[in-house]
Nucleic acid binder design. Structure first.
Lengths: 154, 154
DNA sequence: TCCTACTAGTTGACACGTCAACTATCCACG
DNA sequence: CGTGGATAGTTGACGTGTCAACTAGTAGGA
């Protein structure tokens, strides 16, 4: 495309395209599956998992945002939508008048528990079972290395 | 979460989470970089690349959609928005009154050429340089294997 | 010819994510 | 105190993506 730019070699290009294609297919399949089986978006799932991971299913906006590495405003929009569907609720924060808690509701718990059980089956079928245990471990190792590099070079 | 479900082992879980985390960081970094340097979304980029890959930079909606594996309606919305920004234009199709072409404009060509040059630098910095050549090749191989499995088991 | 089924593409409603601007509260320092 | 700057969270605008319903043109018979 331009000779002054160090373009990728044919082999690098193939690897890169495989990685991009994998991520597109994998995450579109996963979110479609989640939506179809449980009526949850990937965003809903992440929020609910983070809340069930914590005693009382209750977190400050701040802490929840940090936990799942989201921007405040994204979380605020998402919680508004999830509140309407009664998956979570808001609570005021006595210690800090600016702050607020997000709490998972009973319905939220039911939904996420059923969804997680189905989700893990799909992950196993689509991902874990596709590779040998050694290959999967190696993919994990390379992903971690690459992920750390990207985080570091931002 | 539920004993009747074959949950992932601790090691599988670690690998799986690394892969998810990689996906999130990689694509958010890439699209942010593309947006900041070239004013293009990932969607814009994909469309423009597909058009430059073809003589005359002209494709039927159908063929373009197939090329980049998008739904018709997604493409239709995207082309409407890109037309407004004069990156592409529509042309009627003489052979088939229902059909239409998408053509890249001169401005579209300028933009994508500049963007691609910058993009490849980022891909190299963020991805290729993070791993040894052997590791990168192995990641490509595993990605291809997994991607094929997912495509097959849909 | 005309009817029907199919195909190409569009549209509207709604969920999602980002950015920038905004409100309300807290807190540290004079 | 009280005031200015930082912090917590919200909001609106806009680009994006999906789904389902729609329009318009094509094609293959009876």
């Amino acid at each position: 495309m331009n000779d002054t730019v160090p373009w990728l070699s044919a082999e690098e290009q193939r690897s890169w395209r495989s990685l991009v294609r994998l991520h597109q297919k994998l995450f579109s399949s996963l979110t479609a599956d989640l939506q179809a089986r449980s009526g949850l978006s990937g965003a809903d799932f992440e929020v609910l998992v983070a809340l069930t991971d914590v005693p009382e299913g209750r977190l400050r906006f701040q802490d929840l945002a940090k936990e799942i590495e989201w921007e405040q405003s994204r979380l605020s929009h998402q919680i508004r939508r999830m509140t309407k569907r009664e998956l979570v609720a808001r609570e005021e924060c006595a210690e800090d008048g600016r702050g607020a808690f997000v709490v998972i509701t009973g319905r939220g718990r039911e939904v996420i528990e059923a969804a997680a059980a189905k989700h893990v089956v799909t992950v196993r079928r689509l991902v874990v079972d596709a590779l040998t245990p050694d290959e999967f471990a190696e993919l994990g190792r390379l992903s971690a290395k690459l992920g750390d590099h990207i985080t570091g070079s931002r």
